[in-house]
Write a protein that binds this DNA or RNA. Structure first.
Lengths: 182, 182
DNA sequence: CGAAAAATGTTGAGTTCTGAACACATCCCG
DNA sequence: CGGGATGTGTTCAGAACTCAACATTTTTCG
């Protein structure tokens, strides 16, 4: 983890915010490189020092969030469901603008929902109860698919409705439900 | 007015905000160059590319506000009192953090009040009514001193009390009073 | 359609900022 | 008192960013 020049971080931070702000105003395809440069208050050419084009920028933004979520997976897998979920919902809340933009717009990254699903299902794998026998008649893929769609769905609902419950409450309820499903 | 590199403006903007934030937390003398660099998220050395030391930084910050106010003077001197004052109170409101820090702390720039006074009195000079005769028994310096202290005083009160009235209301009332005093 | 306007992606020279180092001053605490 | 920690101001090489210019493509619109 060699450390990165301060300017690079600032530039990327500015661009990240610029994308989110603009996504709240118009669809991704309508956002131009110029828009981004203007909003981020950086030279247009500077964008090309870090990204191929605006799609690459969005890709890398998504990628970094996915990495963040994956990191939380490993960190949290030794807690019980409810406790493990709290940081997730806090993360969703903190990055409200991002998830809102990604889940709300149906066009931009059609794959985003799918990527989320894959990530979550991966994390669920180790959590399936194969000991008590209560899942004897269920297959892994069905349970994972069931829990995965449910999880993504409830996050989407929560975000789109302005996060009506605090992260802790959501973690408690969703934790209970996920525990029952696996 | 040759144009300034974007990075210079960003650096100075960051530093300006850093000073104001830190002034709200501790006294100016307790603020170190390191504090400023950290808060502004810039290299410590960069500060010396623009300023001699922290005092120079504060001086230049004050200076820029004074220039701004002077510019408004010239621009507004052809309006009647009430209309002319609106932009001033809006300016005080916009730069609330600055004026609050400058007027609230009794130590830092003891001269700030005096500078404000001088600037305002200068602006008042051309506004004294020497025609109607109602000021026949009054001398300029007395009227200017009177109106100047009153104006600074009311601004100070307004800022320190969290700006209890909107700029427009303040302009209306203070405009009336200044009109009567000159 | 066709021209004008706007966006894209690249380049190069020049400026600003960074990080790391240095010598020196100041502060604080045992 | 003394010395370890912290702040100051300066320097330098190199990295990141800026601005302006350019050729090219895409959009807009009469």
């Amino acid at each position: 983890m060699e450390k990165v020049d301060r300017r690079v971080l600032k530039t990327q931070e500015s661009l990240k915010n610029a994308v989110l702000e603009l996504l709240a105003e118009k669809s991704f395809d309508d956002i131009t490189i110029r828009d981004l440069a203007d909003r981020a208050n950086i030279n247009r050419g500077t964008i090309y020092l870090h990204y191929q084009d605006k799609y690459d920028l969005l890709d890398k933004l998504i990628e970094s969030h996915m990495r963040e979520l994956d990191a939380m997976d490993e960190w949290a897998c030794q807690l019980d469901w409810v406790d493990a979920l709290v940081p997730y919902f806090e993360y969703f809340q903190t990055n409200y603008l991002f998830f809102s933009a990604m889940l709300a717009s149906k066009e931009a990254p059609a794959s985003f929902r799918a990527r989320l699903m894959t990530s979550f299902m991966e994390g669920f794998k180790g959590e399936i109860d194969r000991e008590s026998g209560r899942n004897a008649d269920l297959t892994d893929d069905v349970m994972l698919q069931y829990a995965g769609t449910a999880y993504v769905g409830i996050i989407e609902w929560w975000i789109k409705n302005g996060m009506p419950y605090p992260p802790r409450d959501m973690a408690k309820q969703v934790g209970t439900l996920l525990g029952r499903s696996l």
